[in-house]
Amino acid sequence: MPSVRVRFRVNGEWVQAQGPLDRRLIDVLRQDLRLPGPLEGCGQGECGSCLVLFNQKAVNACLLPLFAAADAEVFTAEGIAGARAFAGLPGWIRRRGLAEVQRRCGRCAPGMLVALAGLYLGNPEAEAEELADALSGNRCTCGTGARP
């Protein structure tokens, strides 16, 4: 018998999810909603593979229990790629010399895209140092990743 039931928006659509009190948002996104963008890496907030935009801020979906998502607006990497609000994001990333983020092995790219989307919304005039800081919560494990 499920214990909490929560409604929130994912990639623009209202969804309802349920589960035990300590069910994590990342599990709901991957298992119930079949969204592969948020990946599980460390599972404890260190690697950034699981980043999602949560009320317009990049956060670790592995640290968020489902109940904390009530009424929230969540975007995953795949949602960002398709949403009108982010239409200018690819050009913004290219102009900052970060296009290579999308050409990585695929392990850290979705998380990095989310981190950059959060910066794009919150501080589009970000300078090099702020770009580097925004990506400092994303670990590239294959080693191909140059950073700003």
């Binding site: 009190l21 069910r23 994590r24 404890q44 640290l63 229990p65 904390a68």
Partner: peptide
């Protein structure tokens, strides 16, 4: 329950996955 990050970290240190939460929580958000 504020941001929940220290609560999550504590659970991870105790190798509890995902979290160890008591049945009654007060969200501060």
């Amino acid at each position: 329950y504020a941001g929940g990050t220290a609560i999550a970290l504590r659970a991870a240190a105790g190798r509890e996955r995902p979290f160890r939460l008591p049945p009654r929580l007060i969200m501060l958000g």
